[in-house]
Design a protein around this nucleic acid. Structure first.
Lengths: 215, 215
DNA sequence: ATTCCAGTAGGGGAAACCCCCTAAGTGAAA
DNA sequence: TTTCACTTAGGGGGTTTCCCCTACTGGAAT
């Protein structure tokens, strides 16, 4: 227990019970001192604008703001700050978005608290830490590139319009291109995604988070 | 603190960090004694087949088995057992499914641990407990019946086939009815759901959990 | 008894979808 | 420099969706 200076930690999660539990667990870790908690992105950003923190442990499934967005915003407001994402999601796109946004660690909620504590120790020392399952997923991602990465920007743009219930004609008008071009794109999209109907494509888009879940 | 006999509690959640935290919190509550934890439905059912418990606190968002199914199975294997659902979901259909399956309590993860403790106290005394937000939602449900309850069984059956990418003709064959009948149903479905395209209907069905999320 | 609704069925037609095929220009990558 | 992916565009055509309309049956509820 080489106690350095206690680190000011901000804990963000919309599940109060989880906050309650983690507070209890981290109270026994002397590397850190949880000085604040927040249950929403807004609250967190407001706190960080008025106070200095060394480390943030944040959920990335908060309602209202995408996790990556929150991380980027936290880093922007306090450039030196370390951020650990604490997430139930181990889907490629979510993890990748978080890391792209600048997360220094990614811990799954299904991990034990020991893993969270290890992440905190490593990240405060300037290292990065991700859960073993996440590492495996990242390797898989290299080995088996996701279908989405094969879609061009234009194709994704068109998928989004399709899922917004635009007809082919409307999409053509929106993008100032020919109906026939849109149809070409749709053909290519169907081929790449392994779908053949708009219903199937809609399910694909939702499953792969190409669109925001309405619900 | 009128300590009755300590109750044997089984805690089920696939997020180990949450289990770690709640264990810590509940260790201070003398009404209960957490004697086991499980991180999956299978593990929980296996435990409950070999051991007696008085109370179960369970997540209802476990992978593999629907929450309502798990609750029903727990009650079936130990009819007198009390079950508290601990969930992040406050959507009508999820709460209603849990209560229908026999849950004695429904606590949101965004509640504080005090609320969970209150639920445990009430439920062990034979009362029921649901979080305030859930109560409000249940009242709303009475005041504003959900769109889904306006759909007939046949209509829901057809929606499921549509989302499985069946064409009108295929649906007619599957159900041994005329294409025109299926079209009539579709017209009524569009009207009731406020949609007008298969894409919109697919989104509706996924958002309202009429179909299993593929992903 | 009568009203209401679910479920059934149909005619007809415009629009959209989905498929086959080809092809040209651009720009990046091998 | 040649290849490849992306984007653009077209001809032509069969299938499906989506819309209008009506209408019967049978059961459940008032």
């Amino acid at each position: 227990m080489t106690a350095g200076p206690a680190r000011r930690l901000l804990l963000i999660d919309d599940h109060q019970i989880l906050i309650d539990g983690i507070l209890e667990l981290l109270s026994k870790v002397d590397e850190v001192n949880v000085t604040a908690t927040a249950s929403s992105a807004e609250q967190a950003l407001s706190l960080i604008s008025n106070e200095q923190f060394d480390l943030v442990v944040t959920d990335i499934g908060l309602p209202g703001m995408r996790g990556a967005e929150l991380i980027a915003e936290l880093k922007k407001r306090q450039p030196g700050i370390k951020v650990i994402a604490l997430s139930m999601h181990e889907e490629q796109h979510i993890v990748k978005d978080a890391l792209k946004a600048g997360a220094d660690g990614y811990v799954l909620k299904k991990s034990t608290h020991h893993e969270l504590e290890e992440a905190i120790r490593k990240v405060t020392k300037g290292e990065v830490f991700v859960s073993a399952e996440v590492t495996k997923m990242l390797i898989d991602d290299v080995k088996y590139p996701s279908i989405i990465s094969q879609l061009s920007d234009r194709e994704i743009e068109i998928i989004r319009l399709i899922v917004k219930e635009y007809t082919t004609k409307k999409i053509a008008e929106e993008l100032f291109i020919s109906d026939k071009t849109v149809e070409s794109h749709k053909t290519n999209i169907f081929r790449k995604t392994g779908t053949s109907t708009l219903v199937g494509l809609t399910k694909f888009a939702i499953a792969h988070q190409l669109v925001e879940q309405s619900h």
